[in-house]
């Protein structure tokens, strides 16, 4: 009798790991592709939104057991889980629009760096460890969740029924993430001299990556009625961030945006140095043992 027998796949969808029973993320959702859509563009757009969620989820998971307090361990892990759920739905949609026989796992674990379409804000190292600290992580979460909430709210009206449904679901989750980040921003900025210093430094750390969120992308322009034009989100996001900054007596950082490489940034697969290390860790097990199940 093998002592590990009870752990292996019994044919039921009960094992929560990649490769086992996780293929039904969109089962039963109306998946008809919208009329007159370039499927290559739709795939690219789903990857943009899915990769943002996947990569930030990976970064937040790094805080597990290392947050300043137990409650925050649980909070960051829960936020990561919400984003991972959104990523699964979006990557599944990307695979489906693409029409090639691949799935969410293939997209998450076997693409190379230049194939990821996330903004660079989500990939940079904001801690734990020397790349940042809790305040930098909160600063990134504040900016990202404010941007994503504005984006998802618009996306609920998308002509693509799957994107609209994923967005409607995500709005409630991301609104909670934004409140969490805003409340921590106030606590850190209004806490001790040291915590305030860290909050200011955290915002300066992430601010060079903010402009990229609102850079219009040709893929968005080619998907009228389906995608959201990022540039139109700026005013709304600025208003929310200014409200938080005013309440926290913080000034908007004056830092120049990070340059693109010949006009290409994260959305085009041009990433920062941190991305390769992140992918190495995220994809290691899957690539070492292709098709492995637990």
């Amino acid at each position: 009798m093998n002592a590990y027998e009870g752990l292996v796949d019994t044919g039921e969808e009960r094992h929560w790991a990649f490769g086992t029973g996780f293929t039904a993320a969109l089962s039963g959702v109306d998946r008809a592709l919208p009329a007159e859509v370039d499927t290559e563009d739709l795939t690219a757009y789903c990857l943009m939104l899915g990769d943002d969620a996947l990569i930030l989820s990976q970064r937040l998971a790094e805080w597990c057991s290392r947050a300043p307090e137990l409650e925050e361990d649980v909070a960051l892990a829960n936020i990561a889980l919400d984003l991972l759920g959104q990523a699964r739905l979006l990557l599944t949609r990307a695979a489906e629009a693409d029409g090639v026989a691949c799935d969410e796992d293939t997209l998450a674990f076997t693409r190379d760096e230049h194939e990821f379409r996330n903004v660079r804000l989500v990939e940079i190292d904001c801690g734990p460890g020397p790349g940042g600290d809790f305040a930098a992580t909160i600063a990134r979460l504040l900016v990202f969740s404010t941007y994503r909430l504005a984006l998802l709210q618009r996306l609920t009206g998308s002509r693509d029924p799957v994107l609209a449904a994923v967005a409607a679901k995500g709005v409630k989750e991301v609104a909670y993430h934004r409140d969490h980040a805003a409340q921590w921003t106030l606590r850190l900025a209004g806490g001790t001299e040291f915590s305030r210093e860290r909050m200011v430094a955290g915002l300066e750390r992430v601010w060079p990556f903010v402009d990229e969120l609102f850079a219009p992308h040709p893929v968005e322009a080619r998907l009228p009625g389906i995608a959201v034009d990022s540039a139109t989100l700026r005013a709304e996001v600025d208003e929310v961030l200014d409200t938080v900054f005013a309440a926290a007596s913080l000034a908007r950082p004056e830092v120049s945006p990070l340059a693109t490489v010949a006009g290409r940034g994260g959305r085009d697969g041009v990433h920062t140095e941190a991305m390769g290390y992140l992918l190495a860790e995220m994809q290691h097990v899957h690539r070492s043992m292709p098709g492995a199940t637990w």
Binding site: R14, L81, D82, K169, G170
Partner: peptide
Amino acid sequence: VTITPTYSGCPALDEMRADLTR
């Protein structure tokens, strides 16, 4: 049977599916 997730990433969804089938 048609069900809906509470949260996008709720891991209990797969468990619900298995319980319903069982």
